[in-house]
């Protein structure tokens, strides 16, 4: 197990290095960053001044090492637009997105997994049908429409919840519902199909032959094997939810990372964009690594050795 974890962490480290190089490179894919900052109509002298001020005139490798070095010490550079540290801007915006993402993820899991299990226990039963309707509608209804409808009905007509912002906890209710509604179908489907497969295995039948009650057969023998594919999917979904959604944040007027990324792109605030991409990529690396380790905890075959 220890050797599995250390191997997996080594891989994660290598991926992190690659990801950092790629997000550093993003600065340059759209051409000369100095011109991008100065604006295409800017004068050559301005571009040159910017080049020197930001150090764009140095060799790439030096710039990369410099950037990585300061990133490691928690310095992701200055926002070109606001002229304040990037970490400060991101810090101000991350709270809303992380809170919303985590809560939505938990809500989605708490609904999707039991529903998927119940649907698998009686395929084509009434729970399965309800689950199917939820899944199909969740995938078919556009999120901005659902969000707007929720605001109109619960915010405007009934006035139960604030129609925008996240100054109070009530402000999170509608966005959480809308976001988790989109995460549920896939989580539920993979739980259901995993569970159906596992329930048909010989070892589940053998567990029943031992005279174990059904709830133990499900919780001890079936679920643990059925969640293996769910774990990997959940990691990716959590990553998505924590990255923030431009649509949801715009509809509900939340100042989160999704909108920040979008606004920074429009403002050509490259250090911010670059930092967000770096942070989110690293987040994915961390989450998938954790998922792999969790799977190895659940399934001894993945650990290697015995």
């Amino acid at each position: 197990m220890l050797s599995f974890i250390s191997k997996r962490l080594l891989v994660a480290l290598l991926v992190c290095l690659t990801v950092s190089a790629l997000s550093f490179g993003l600065m340059f894919v759209s051409g000369d960053p100095a011109i991008a900052i100065a604006g295409s109509g800017g004068r050559a002298e301005d571009a040159e001044a910017i080049r020197q001020a930001y150090g764009f005139d140095r060799p790439l490798i030096v710039q990369y090492l410099d950037w990585i070095g300061s990133a490691l010490t928690g310095n992701l550079g200055q926002s070109i637009y606001f002229n304040v540290p990037v970490t400060e801007i991101i810090g101000n915006r991350a709270g809303v997105t992380l809170t919303l993402g985590f809560i939505s993820f938990l809500v989605a899991l708490v609904i999707a997994v039991p529903l998927g299990v119940a649907a698998a226990l009686r395929p084509n039963g009434w729970i399965d049908r309800i689950a199917l309707v939820i899944a199909v509608s969740g995938q078919a209804i556009p999120s901005f429409w659902l969000g707007l409808m929720a605001i109109v009905v619960f915010g405007v007509w009934y006035g139960w919840v604030p129609i925008s912002g996240a100054d109070t906890w009530q402000g999170y209710i509608l966005p959480v519902i809308v976001l988790s509604y989109y995460a549920i179908p896939e989580l539920m489907r993979i739980t259901r199909s995993g569970m159906i497969d596992v329930l048909a295995t010989d070892y589940v039948r053998a567990a029943r032959a031992k005279g174990l009650p059904m709830h133990l057969v499900i919780s001890r023998h079936a679920l643990r094997n059925a969640v293996l594919p769910l774990v990997s999917l959940a990691a990716v979904q959590l990553g998505q939810l924590l990255s923030g959604s431009i649509v949801i944040e715009s509809v509900f007027a939340l100042n989160g990372l999704g909108r920040l990324a979008w606004e920074s792109l429009l403002r050509s605030d490259l250090p911010v964009v670059q930092a967000i991409i770096l942070i989110l990529s690293l987040l994915y690396v961390v989450l998938t690594t954790l998922a792999d380790i969790l799977n190895a905890v659940l399934d001894p075959r993945l650990r290697g050795g015995s």
Binding site: R205, A206, H221, N225, D299
Partner: peptide, 20 residues
């Protein structure tokens, strides 16, 4: 089941739960 009557199933290799 598991008390008075027990069964050994046809395929032996898959009747053990790999995670326990």
């Amino acid at each position: 089941r598991g008390r008075d009557v027990a069964m050994i199933f046809q395929d032996p290799t898959s009747a053990l739960n790999p995670t326990l």
